[in-house]
């Protein structure tokens, strides 16, 4: 699959650094996620909300990490849209939740999220979970 084609990143892309899309309306969290993942060798694309995330999916990504509470298009809505299209079918999608959001977590899972990370989390915890679902 060529880079121009919009679709799930495939084994052919494997040789290159894996690309992760991080979606969060909180700049500080985005920054932390970006620095942590970039430091671990991933390529990171940032988006400020669900709408922005969809707009930035012009390149194949290997994984999406999204916050749930966001303006315009929230995390659950984003996950549903991602799973409905071909570009993110079957790729891991992690959601960032807070401990008070058990119901939201279930909603996210039903929408197609692969897993979750509970805020607050440390950089080590983030990497551990990313490694678990992305390899």
């Amino acid at each position: 699959m060529s880079r121009e084609t919009l679709g799930p990143a495939t084994a052919a892309d494997e040789a290159m650094a894996k690309t992760i899309l991080t979606v969060d309306d909180s700049a500080s969290v985005r920054q932390m996620v970006k620095f942590t993942l970039a430091d671990a060798g991933y390529t990171v694309i940032e988006a400020v909300d669900g709408e922005d995330a969809l707009a930035k999916l012009t390149v194949p990504v290997h994984m999406v990490i999204t916050d749930l509470n966001m303006p315009n298009l929230d995390g659950i809505g984003l996950i549903r849209k991602l799973r409905a299209g071909p570009a993110c079918k079957g790729i891991p999608i992690l959601m960032l939740t807070t401990e008070s959001q058990e119901a939201r977590k279930q909603e996210g899972k039903a929408a197609g999220a692969t897993g979750w990370i509970v805020k607050p989390f440390t950089t080590q915890q983030l990497l551990a979970v990313v490694k678990r679902v992305l390899g």
């Binding site: 309306d25 909180s26 969290v29 932390m32 509470n69 303006p71 805020k119 607050p120």
Partner: peptide, 28 residues
Amino acid sequence: VGRAFRALHTIKGSGAMFGFDDIAGFTH
């Protein structure tokens, strides 16, 4: 209401992330 909630939610969530536990606790 949603806007206000999200602002508080983000202050709480991000605050906890970066060691602002008092702010996170209060905002919660």
